[in-house]
Structure formats: C-alpha cells, structure tokens
C-alpha cells in the first residue's frame, strides 16, 4: 500500500509552538510511555543501565541556539517527531507495503507485521522521524496516537495524542488541517506556521510556530522623575508624591 492516497478526507497533525516549548521533555517520555504498551511492539531500550544506553523514541526534543544579527543569542527548544507528510517519501520507498498513509485521516503508519526492517523508509525521511527498533527489528514511528484519538475506551477529552495531553505549557496542538476553521489551521495561519525543510518537497502536515520576536523594552526612559530630587531635596519630593493621594 505504498501508493499515497490522492487525497485524504482529514489531515490530522500537530502544531508545535516554538515560542512556548520550554524543553521539558514531557512529550518525549509520555510518548514513550504510551507507545511502549500501545500500538505495535514495545519501544525497546538496549543496555538501559549500561555505559552506552540506547533506545527507541518516537519524539525527541532538541535545543538550538540562535544568534540574531543584533541582540543576545536565544535558545529554542525543538520537538521533532513524524510530520505525517502529504507527499511522504517514507511510504513510497517501502518495498513491502508496511508503510502507508491512511486515506481517511492522512496518518502515516507502519504495519509492523509486514515490515521487513529494511530501513529504507528511515533513509527516505528527512526528519529522522523513524527509528528501527533494535529488539523487534521493525520500524517504529509516531502513530499520531491512532490508538488514542479514536479510542472509545478513553473519555472523549482524552482522545488526543499522549504528547499533546501531557504538554504542560500547551505548546502542542492536535487537529485537522483539512478543516480551515480548526484550531490548528487557525493557529498555523495566524502565527505563521511553517514547514520544516520545504526543499525536500514532502509537504508536512505538522506545522511549527516560530518564536515571537524577542524585544527589549523601549530603551528610552519612560519614567520621567517627578521632579529633580537633587534640586528640591527629599522634602520637595515627599510633598510632590504625597500630594498625589
């Protein structure tokens, strides 16, 4: 099933707000926690208490430093997971059909039972969104929590991805980009949501919101002294101040 659907009824995805993400890693471990016991095989760890631990994560948060031309350097925390691309190269390269994009909602999934673990899809993904699980030998990736968002065993309000549900700052938003009135569509439109690596022509569904402009307050003193304390002395100042009540 590695032909991409011509269109998908919904375009489910995430908005990630780089202005708000404090880099707390909650989405990283919440994702691991849910998916360790959810869709497909567990996310294994190798040498978890050893000198060279390593494991499968579907979402990782980086931290970058940006030096503007003027002004001090900034730190931007940067979560990275599958963007559920419209033109998903990871899907079309897959020889087995294990990778596919769902026609109904655009979620890109791996059918682990069909996956031969060739790794080609991970090569094809520009964003490092796929990790081959070292214990299970199958490709793991963000499922957009497909086993949560429609899950009738969960209360309605919990039918959202684990990472979104846990994000303490509300920097992650989930919704349908096919609906221009949805929360995520509006956020992306209003805040200048952008694509990662547009030159890769993957048409990511997920959008990132840029950090707002960081500005120092007007450097000019807005607080004019009431009167020249030097000239009138403390008593003069006191009169002026208290005269105001």
């Amino acid at each position: 099933m590695t032909q991409l659907p011509a269109t998908t009824a919904k375009k489910l995805g995430l908005v990630i707000d780089l202005d708000t993400c404090v880099g707390c890693q909650a989405c990283v471990t919440a994702c691991k926690g849910w998916n360790d016991q959810g869709y497909g095989v567990p996310l294994s760890d190798q040498s978890p208490y050893g000198s060279d631990p390593s494991g499968t994560f579907l979402n990782r948060v980086h931290s970058y430093e940006v030096q503007p031309e003027a002004g001090p350097a900034q730190i931007v925390n940067f979560p990275r997971s599958c963007l559920h691309c419209e033109d998903a190269p990871c899907v079309t390269v897959c020889p087995t059909g294990a990778s596919y994009k769902r026609a109904e909602d655009g979620i890109v999934l791996v059918n682990e039972d069909a996956c031969i673990g060739c790794g080609l899809c991970a090569w094809a993904c520009p964003y490092g969104a796929r990790e081959l699980d070292a214990a299970a030998g199958v490709m793991k990736k963000c499922t957009l929590c497909v086993d949560r968002i429609y899950n009738e065993n969960l209360p309605e309000e919990d039918r959202e991805p684990a990472c979104v549900r846990t994000c303490p700052t509300g920097a992650r938003h989930f919704g349908d980009f096919a609906d221009p009135t949805s929360h995520v569509s509006r956020l992306a439109a209003e805040r200048g949501g952008f694509d990662l690596m547009p030159e890769m022509a993957t048409k990511p569904t997920n959008k990132y919101l840029p950090p707002r402009k960081k500005a120092a307050p007007d450097e000019a003193s807005l607080l004019a002294p009431l009167l020249d304390v030097q000239a009138t002395g403390f008593a003069g100042w006191l009169d002026r101040v208290l005269g105001k009540i």
Partner: peptide, 29 residues
C-alpha cells in the same frame, strides 16, 4: 536553518542534542 525554520532569526547552532545517549539515527544515518 531550513531544518529548524529558525534561519530567519539568525545563525542556528546545536545547543544540546535531544539525547546524550546514542540512537538508531545516529548509528544509521
């Protein structure tokens, strides 16, 4: 710059890698 979309603000460099431990991406790619 294009990978993070932060190029418009200024020069981008890695401050901290997501994980100090190794992973599949680092080994494979």
């Amino acid at each position: 710059a294009s990978a993070t979309g932060l190029g418009a603000i200024g020069q981008v460099r890695v401050f901290e890698q997501a994980h100090t431990a190794g992973n599949y991406l680092l080994r494979e790619m």
